[in-house]
Simulated assay, not measured.
Amino acid sequence: MDRRALLALAPLALLAGPALASEEKSAGKPEVGQYVDLAPVALPIVVRGLLINYVFVSVRIQLSALANTAKLRTREPYFRDALVRAGHRAPYFTLATDYTKVDEVKLRSVMQREAIAIAGAKDIKTVTVISQSPKKRTGLPDPKANAAREIRP
């Protein structure tokens, strides 16, 4: 009987260990800051008018200390919509040297401007790209060959 009770409680004891460790970890360190994470967005990679790939990008908008985080998290669809519109307006985020990534510098600058327009300058600190995941990694044209074919004045 005791052996059966111990065997029945063993999985629960194993599950309790990580939960207690995460509580201790979260209690020991303060929150990194206030932010709004955008759901991953597929941005097109267009070369000479041809769609050759999509890159799924996750973006974090860092908020100032005085920002109303709950209110701004409800505006996440507006931030994401602004990113999608900017990415599809023109092949603006296409990186000329790698078709499996987007140009982070351009993306951050555009999203910083859009986030300030949506939330206000006093609420937005910075915009960072958390991750990039291309749809295709192989079978893409060579960026160096395309750069050589471009006609420059």
Score class of each variant (00 low, 15 high):
residue 56 F to E: 14
residue 118 I to P: 14
residue 147 A to C: 04
residue 142 D to I: 07
residue 46 V to F: 12
residue 87 G to Y: 01
residue 69 T to N: 02
residue 92 Y to N: 10
residue 79 F to H: 06
residue 1 M to W: 15
residue 84 V to D: 06
residue 69 T to W: 01
residue 21 A to S: 05
residue 42 A to N: 06
residue 40 P to Y: 02
residue 147 A to D: 13
residue 151 I to S: 11
residue 141 P to N: 04
residue 24 E to R: 14
residue 103 D to L: 10
residue 72 L to I: 13
residue 63 L to D: 01
residue 125 K to E: 13
residue 49 G to H: 04
residue 127 V to E: 09
residue 68 N to P: 06
residue 54 Y to Q: 12
residue 20 L to T: 09
residue 46 V to E: 14
residue 96 A to Q: 08
residue 105 V to D: 12
residue 88 H to K: 08
residue 136 K to C: 01
residue 62 Q to F: 05
residue 126 T to G: 00
residue 29 K to G: 03
residue 7 L to Y: 10
residue 139 G to C: 07
residue 93 F to S: 09
residue 77 P to R: 05
residue 72 L to Y: 14
residue 85 R to L: 03
residue 28 G to H: 14
residue 74 T to P: 00
residue 106 K to W: 06
residue 6 L to H: 13
residue 19 A to E: 07
residue 89 R to Q: 15
residue 78 Y to M: 06
residue 150 E to M: 09
residue 89 R to E: 14
residue 35 Y to P: 04
residue 3 R to W: 12
residue 48 R to S: 12
residue 43 L to A: 13
residue 84 V to K: 09
residue 5 A to Q: 07
residue 3 R to N: 13
residue 141 P to K: 02
residue 92 Y to C: 06
residue 84 V to M: 11
residue 112 Q to N: 11
residue 58 S to G: 02
residue 93 F to L: 09
residue 80 R to T: 05
residue 149 R to E: 08
residue 68 N to R: 10
residue 88 H to L: 08
residue 143 P to D: 13
residue 64 S to I: 05
residue 13 A to M: 09
residue 46 V to G: 05
residue 93 F to N: 10
residue 116 I to T: 14
